[in-house]
Simulated assay, not measured.
Amino acid sequence: MKKTILNALLGVTAAFLISGAASAANVNPDVIFGSGNANGGFTVGTTNNIEVGLRAKQRFPVPANIFNYDGVDTYNFNAGESAPGSGRPLWSFEWSINTDVAGTSGAKVQDFTYQLRLDHDPSAGQSFTSFDPIMGPVALLGMDHSFGDNSTLNGQGVEVASGDAPGYANLIANNNVVQNSWQYQWFTVIDPLIAGLYRIQMDVLSANGELLSTAGINVVVSAVPLPAALPLYGAGMAVLGFLGWRRKQRAA
Rank of each mutant, 00 (worst) to 15 (best):
N150F: 05
N26I: 01
I32K: 09
V27Q: 01
V239P: 00
S151V: 09
P84Y: 04
L140E: 11
R117A: 15
T129N: 13
A64T: 12
V160P: 07
Q183N: 15
G125I: 03
N170E: 12
N170Q: 14
W182I: 06
M135P: 03
N68G: 05
F242K: 02
I50W: 07
N76P: 01
I66C: 07
L6V: 10
I18V: 15
S86E: 09
P225Q: 03
A64S: 14
W245G: 11
F77G: 03
F131V: 04
P192L: 08
N208F: 02
N39K: 05
R88F: 14
V224P: 02
F77C: 06
G106D: 04
D191N: 12
T74N: 07
E51N: 03
D111N: 11
A228L: 14
T113S: 04
N48A: 08
L90W: 02
D111T: 06
N37F: 13
L141A: 15
I66G: 06
V221S: 00
N218F: 11
D30E: 08
D111S: 07
P61R: 02
S96C: 14
Q185V: 08
I66E: 11
A195D: 06
A64P: 05
A107L: 07
W186P: 00
Q110E: 09
S23Y: 12
F16Y: 09
V219A: 02
Y198R: 03
T104N: 09
N170R: 12
G167I: 06
A56N: 02
S86A: 15
V224T: 12
G11Q: 10
V31T: 13
P122L: 05
R117H: 10
L232Q: 13
N208H: 08
M202G: 01
I5N: 04
S105W: 05
V158Y: 09
R250G: 06
Q58Y: 03
S35N: 14
P84C: 04
D121V: 05
A161G: 13
L118H: 03
P227C: 04
G53F: 00
I200M: 03
F242L: 11
G106Y: 04
G53M: 01
L153D: 10
L171C: 05
G209T: 06
N208W: 01
A25D: 12
A56R: 01
K57N: 12
R250S: 11
Q156C: 08
A56M: 05
Q201L: 13
V31I: 15
E210D: 12
N175T: 10
M135H: 12
A79C: 10
L153S: 14
T214F: 01
A215R: 01
M135F: 07
G40W: 04
A24L: 08
T47V: 11
G34S: 11
E159L: 14
Q126E: 14
K108N: 11
Y233T: 15
F147T: 00
V31F: 07
S213F: 00
N170F: 11
D164Y: 11
N176K: 08
E94F: 09
D30G: 01
G209Q: 08
F112P: 00
R199F: 08
P29G: 02
N174D: 06
T47P: 10
D203P: 00
N174Q: 12
I32W: 14
Q179W: 08
M237I: 14
R55F: 07
V220I: 07
A207N: 15
L116D: 00
M1P: 08
